[in-house]
Amino acid sequence: MRIRGLLARIWAGLSILLVLAVILFLFVFIFLRGGSVITWDFLSQPPSGAVLGEEGGILPAITGSLAFTLTATVLGGLPAIATALYLVFFCKSRRLGSLIHTILQCISGIPSIVLGLFAYSFFVRDLNWGRCVLSASMALAIMILPFIEIHAEKAFREIPRGFVESSQALGCAPYYTVFHVVLPSCRGELISGILLGACYAMGATAPMIFTGAVAFATSPKSLMQPAMALPLHLYLLIAQGTTSLDRAYGTAFVMMALILVSNLLVMIYTERSHRRWIQR
């Protein structure tokens, strides 16, 4: 091995170790510091204390995040999957296909803070919805739309062409093919994509800070109310300074745990389905 090869080897080895160490550090750091804060009360009580959030729990942030995430996933996921279906199975023109891809790429390039500006201008002011779960979720939905579309399109393209063509050859209408062949044969990949998209929406703060999230709001009763969310809750606790810090670690713990669990589920599923493809 010449000197260049040796250097490359050392560089590559150190890099991958550093990457893995950083990942391990991030999770261990949050889990160790936040672990002691996690109690049933922390998860099931609203925040309290002289400076709100110093004591008590994060219940409204959890329910709020749930509301934002679910709404955004439905609003963003449906068009995303429809677009993916259209591109893979129905779009006959290559030019139109690549145009749609370009547009999706542009959408994914919009900074999330600008999506917040958009939602504020359109939904909060022009449509007069005010700051509410729905306004913010619209911004989040646009944010995760290209993300879910890419995952769904990849899943659809991996279905063996023969499945679809055999169904068509039997004279089955497209909707029948989609519901009885396409969706069942990539259900898991699709759910994985949606789940990861939901995590993405759950962790986003920028699009909601002036469109739907209100500091220490109570649990939302309807989509037309503002709510609190986990990442914003974390941000506010950090901004309040040292007295709220352990609660901040606890909040971060909850988010990191959600991310880890979702990714593990996806990982286990891909591992299993990977084996299924090989056996086939």
């Binding site: 974390l234 971060a252 991310i259």
Partner: peptide, 19 residues
Amino acid sequence: LYPVIDLLAGIPSVVYGFV
């Protein structure tokens, strides 16, 4: 390793800022 590295993409940016 790929899914492990992908974990980084899932971590909320507030948490990155916090750490």
